Simulated scan of single mutants.
Amino acid sequence: MIDKVDFSKGEASFSDAVKKIDFTPILKKYRDPATVYAWLVVNDKIVSGEMMKLACFRHLQDLRRAEDPDEEFPYRYDLGRCRSILGFASIFPEPAHGKPMPLMLWQKAILCMSKAWVYKDNDNFRYTRVIVSVARATVNLISPASCCGTPT
């Protein structure tokens, strides 16, 4: 059984919670961009905001829950979908040059986190909407996430 961590009441420190949890089995099994990015964020190797830290922590915790046979967790992380969305996004052209640009780690992570989590029983997407807020300096880039809508 995975211990629950409640950050909403201020009882748990984020860094203390991360230090208490052994993510080693997850990090050995999942080497995709979302998991790598999540690990770097929760360990303060990448500077990010509170909401992104929480999303990364949830991603790592959910991977643990998905792997735990004692948990009744309705989702699974589909590495095939992760590879698929990254393959599609890698050919998406950058508007100014008309050529594909390599995705940054955070872009890969957001795509994988939003499209690779699916329901175990029917393979539908876990998340149907994702809000991504990026600093103004990158406003001229079109995100591959904008073209990857949810099927009806």
Rank of each mutant, 00 (worst) to 15 (best):
Val42Pro: 00
Val42Asn: 00
Val42Glu: 02
Val42Ile: 15
Asn43Ile: 09
Asn43Cys: 10
Asp44Asn: 08
Lys45Val: 15
Val47Thr: 14
Gly49Met: 01
Met51Leu: 07
Met52Lys: 00
Lys53Ser: 05
Lys53Glu: 11
Cys56Glu: 02
Phe57Val: 10
Arg58Ile: 08
Arg58Phe: 08
His59Thr: 09
Leu60Gln: 08
Gln61Gly: 04
Asp62Gly: 09
Asp62Glu: 15
Leu63Ser: 09
Arg64Met: 15
Arg64Asn: 03
Arg65Pro: 05
Arg65Lys: 15
Glu67Asn: 14
Asp68Ser: 14
Asp68Glu: 14
Asp68Gly: 12
Pro69Met: 10
Pro69Asp: 11
Glu72Met: 07
Tyr77His: 10
Tyr77Lys: 02
Tyr77Ile: 12
Leu79Thr: 15
Leu79Glu: 11
Gly80Leu: 15
Gly80Gln: 13
Gly80Cys: 06
Arg81Lys: 13
Arg81Ile: 07
Arg81His: 09
Cys82Asp: 05
Cys82Met: 09
Cys82His: 02
Arg83Thr: 06
Leu86Asn: 03
Phe88Ser: 05
Phe88Ala: 07
Ser90Ile: 08
Ile91Ser: 09
Ile91Arg: 01
Phe92Met: 07
Pro93His: 07
Pro93Tyr: 05
Pro93Phe: 04
Glu94Thr: 03
Glu94Asp: 14
Pro95Asp: 13
Gly98Met: 06
Lys99His: 12
Pro100Met: 07
Met101Glu: 12
Pro102Glu: 12
Leu103Pro: 01
Leu103Thr: 02
Met104Val: 02
Leu105Cys: 03
Leu105Arg: 01
Trp106Thr: 03
Trp106Tyr: 12
Gln107His: 03
Gln107Phe: 05
Gln107Val: 13
